[in-house]
Design a protein around this nucleic acid. Structure first.
Lengths: 211, 211
DNA sequence: AGAATAGTGTCTCTCAGACATTATTTG
DNA sequence: CAAATAATGTCTGAGAGACACTATTCT
């Protein structure tokens, strides 16, 4: 299809300074946009997505997942552009190189180019939704974390306070995390560190809606 | 991207003769494949998807939803083919033209070309999953239906028997359907007809898994 | 009247949600 | 010993799941 341009775009999320952030790159004029790459004939879509943020984030630390493909003929005034959009989560402590890209709080985004604002909004909606019924959230945390950190992560993304005792009862009862022998010290009583168990059934059964 | 071919494929489901069926079209050799179309520079992806089954099914009767984009360089030995795959549901009584395409029971599929078997399997998994937490199932039924027909649809797709009283209690309690003044006669006591209420909150809250 | 299908109510048990105090460490 | 954070248990109410009989129509 000589007249159709095929790109990938990436909506990358990370927790920084107690808030959810998105990685953006400078775009036309004073606007910002999602990191992107043109798909090469010999690479997979996922490899293209990894190229979009190469030099900024180590791809081995990123959890990548396909989000949606945008292909409306009106979305870019210059070309017929079809974009496969990926959704990425990186842990708080992920290594980061310097460059033109910057992290922005999702509640304080700069003006975004083209349809990137609606794509970002959709990705955020999906992140919140997936957080509730899958175990993706752990991709935003370092490999060992305290229960308070885990609860905090949920609270930031879902935007609501959770009850500490109920939270612990449910998260431990689900078997999705396990204790490590380590503790994290600091001010106050040290907290036990836990780790995520990828082998645990992440396909937990959700209560059905209708039948 | 002159070397990349952009297609759409459609996995279309319908209930026929008490079983879930998929629409297939003859492919290379003795195999069958998913209906497809090449994306034109001026049409939307969804329009291209509708073209894929034009002449067979009236597109106004089909519920179309984007499923996933497949773009592995190895998936077609002849070209670098990227396919945006749509998922379609049509009601049992949808008009159907004649042509080369045929309906096959999902549990008795013929040999499928390329990666179409895994795409179909994924679409089926998604259909079962979505059926449990959204209202898509109604797209497989005519606009008015009895509670027995509705329950039957769920049983066929989920592959398990459901309790009649619990089913009615929950489905009516959810407010997702409403009575019509009509009845359907036949053998035995006539049944009241219901209709789907698209305005009812289909975004019903699912019980959270973790937090 | 018999066959076929539609329609209806109760009990139990699990689990979500609300809620406050004690334990351990550091400065 | 004061400040800070971690860790822990109980009660109540809602709803999922199991279960069997009556009602209406047709032939």
């Amino acid at each position: 299809m000589s007249e159709i341009l095929l790109n990938v775009h990436v909506v990358m999320f990370s927790l920084r300074e107690e808030a959810l952030h998105v990685l953006l790159t400078p775009a036309e004029g004073r606007t910002w946009g999602l990191p992107h790459a043109q798909v090469q004939a010999t690479e997979s879509l996922e490899d293209a997505a990894a190229r979009a943020f190469a030099g900024q984030i180590d791809k081995r630390q990123a959890h990548l997942e396909q989000l949606y493909t945008y292909g409306d003929p009106e979305r870019d005034p210059r070309w017929r552009l079809v974009s496969v959009v990926y959704f990425a989560l990186v842990p708080t402590n992920a290594q980061q190189a310097s460059g033109k890209m910057r992290w922005f709080r999702v509640d304080k985004l700069p003006p975004l180019a083209y349809d990137h604002a609606s794509i970002t909004a959709y990705a955020l909606r999906r992140l919140r939704y997936k957080l509730e019924y899958s175990a993706v959230g752990f991709q935003l945390l370092p490999s060992e974390f305290t229960l308070s950190e885990l609860q905090h992560m949920y609270e930031i993304i879902l935007g609501e306070k959770l009850d500490k005792r109920n939270f612990r009862r449910r998260i431990l009862g689900s078997g999705i995390i396990e204790e490590t022998p380590h503790q994290r010290g600091g001010e106050g009583r040290p907290a036990r560190l836990y780790r995520y168990r990828p082998d645990a059934v992440a396909e937990v059964k959700v209560r059905r809606l209708f039948p």
